[in-house]
Design a protein around this nucleic acid. Structure first.
Length: 149
DNA sequence: GCCAACGTTGGC
DNA sequence: GCCAACGTTGGC
């Protein structure tokens, strides 16, 4: 079992959006960064994922989802209508992946970034490091537990 | 292979 | 809206 965190802008895919989706499951697509993509590809079935809300009024971790389908080619990369279209990606050689995430839990409050920064267990985590723009990152069990408590 | 220019992310 | 930090692109 691995643990992860993914960032989302809540107006695009918030924890509530996942909870209200058909079968409470959403395709997690649009990742266009190689490091983040590689982490997506490393996700295994039933891995747990913190849902982090960014670029909004309440920045922080909002809840938990789990991986119900492991990585497959992100269809938006082939769709010229999509904002995530990538003309350099070919169907027989996709560059980008998606996973499917299913709702697990919404926290009673969003755990603010400020609070996460003050948690000594997270000092070495990419999330709290200045200038880090990584949108998919691994969490160790210790880091996960430190947040979940 | 270097690196300047550019575009994007994301907190504030 | 600002701007620092970062990743990508493309000329050379």
């Amino acid at each position: 079992m691995n643990y992860w965190l993914v960032k989302t802008e809540p107006n695009e895919c918030s924890i509530d959006d996942i909870a209200n989706a058909t079968q409470q499951t959403m395709r997690w697509d649009g990742v266009r960064n190689y490091q983040a993509r590689n982490f997506l590809a490393a996700m295994a079935l039933n891995d747990l994922v913190f849902i982090y809300h960014s670029s909004c009024t309440k920045v922080g971790i909002a809840g938990i989802a789990k991986v119900v389908r492991t990585h497959y080619p992100d269809p938006t990369q082939f769709d010229p209508e999509s904002a995530y279209f990538d003309s350099k990606s070919k169907p027989d050689e996709p560059r980008w992946y998606a996973v499917d995430l299913q709702f697990v839990e919404k926290f009673s409050r969003v755990i603010p970034l400020q609070e996460l920064k003050q948690n000594p267990a997270l000092t070495n985590n990419k999330l709290v490091q200045k200038g880090s723009r990584l949108s998919v990152m691994p969490f160790s069990q210790q880091e996960w537990n430190a947040v979940y408590e």
